[in-house]
Amino acid sequence: MSRTSRPVPLPRVAPSPSAEPPYDDERPSGDLPAAPPYVQGALALAYGPEPVEPPARSPLIWGPPGAVPDERRLRALGQAVAEVLSGRRPPASVSPHMTGRAHAELVRSGKIINCARPPLVGTAHVSQPKDGVVEMCVLVHCGDRPRVLALRLERRGVQWLCTDVETTP
Rank of each mutant, 00 (worst) to 15 (best):
P129C: 10
P129L: 09
S109R: 15
V81G: 14
R73F: 08
A67G: 06
W62V: 07
P64I: 03
P64G: 07
S93K: 07
R89P: 12
G100A: 13
W62D: 13
C115M: 05
G110F: 04
L74K: 08
G100W: 01
K111G: 00
I113F: 15
I112T: 15
P54T: 02
R73Q: 10
A56Q: 04
L106H: 08
R72Q: 15
A124E: 04
G110S: 05
G122C: 01
P129R: 10
E105C: 03
P55Y: 07
I113N: 05
S93R: 09
R117Q: 11
A116C: 00
V126L: 10
E105Y: 01
I112S: 11
V107K: 09
D131R: 12
P129N: 12
G122A: 02
G78F: 11
P65M: 00
L74N: 10
S86K: 10
V126Y: 04
P119E: 05
H97N: 09
E83L: 15
P96V: 03
V68K: 07
I61H: 13
W62G: 05
S93I: 06
P55R: 10
R117F: 04
Q128I: 02
C115K: 00
W62M: 07
R89K: 12
D70W: 11
P96Y: 04
A76E: 15
V68H: 00
H125K: 11
P91T: 08
P91H: 12
V126N: 04
P129V: 07
P65G: 01
S86E: 08
S86Q: 12
P96N: 06
R57C: 02
V94L: 07
I113E: 07
S93Y: 12
S127G: 06
E71Q: 13
G63Q: 08
E83I: 04
V126E: 04
G100C: 02
K111D: 01
V94Y: 05
S93D: 13
A92G: 02
K111E: 07
A104W: 03
N114P: 00
G110V: 02
R72W: 13
G122I: 00
G87T: 11
L74W: 07
G87S: 11
L106Q: 07
C115R: 05
A124N: 01
P118N: 05
P91W: 09
V107E: 08
P91E: 09
V107A: 09
G87Y: 14
K130N: 02
G66T: 01
H125E: 12
Q128G: 00
S86G: 14
A76S: 13
G100K: 04
A124Y: 00
G100Q: 10
L120G: 04
P54Q: 08
G63E: 08
P64K: 12
A102N: 04
L106E: 09
T123R: 13
R101D: 14
H103I: 04
K111W: 01
V81M: 12
V107G: 05
L120H: 09
G78M: 11
S86M: 11
T123C: 02
T99Y: 11
K130H: 03
P59V: 07
S58C: 03
I112K: 08
V126M: 06
P91D: 07
D70T: 05
K130G: 02
Q128P: 00
S127L: 08
V68I: 14
R73L: 15
P91Q: 14
E71L: 10
A116R: 09
L85D: 12
A102W: 03
I61F: 11
P69S: 07
P65F: 01
R108V: 01
A116I: 00
M98A: 15
A82V: 05
M98G: 03
R101L: 13
K111L: 02
L77T: 15
